[in-house]
Amino acid sequence: MRLAADASAALLSFIKDSIGIGDAFAMSSTVITRNVVVRNPQGLHARPADLVVREASRYQADIMLEKDGCRVDCKSILSLLTLGAECGTQMSLLAEGADAEQAVAMISELFDNGFHELEQAE
């Protein structure tokens, strides 16, 4: 089995080298995507955006939110606020890198929990 795996990895590497896509191909194969919905009534305002940035900054992965074809960096509060995402807004959360899976899991949990605002009477 291991021999077969090594052989296919070597073959994949050979293909990538021969068509000149190298690492870009390897990176794109680790993109994790999940749909998220803004659940808190106040939307993705400054405080939730700050929470997302703080969580995203814990990971090495590139983490993006995509809304209506517009993609922004989850590690920048200024970028997140440009989304103007109200309650009910659906977006795609994308992460690329070694810890992408965990990043997506933790950040989508923030969305699911309404950024801890659901239990508060505002």
Binding site: P41, G43, H45, A46, S79, T82, L83, G84, E86
Partner: peptide
């Protein structure tokens, strides 16, 4: 009016980029 507040933040952040 949370929506208006969000749209104001959206405008401010877009311009300041």
């Amino acid at each position: 009016r949370p929506g208006d507040h969000l749209r104001a933040l959206e405008n401010i952040s877009k311009q300041l980029r």
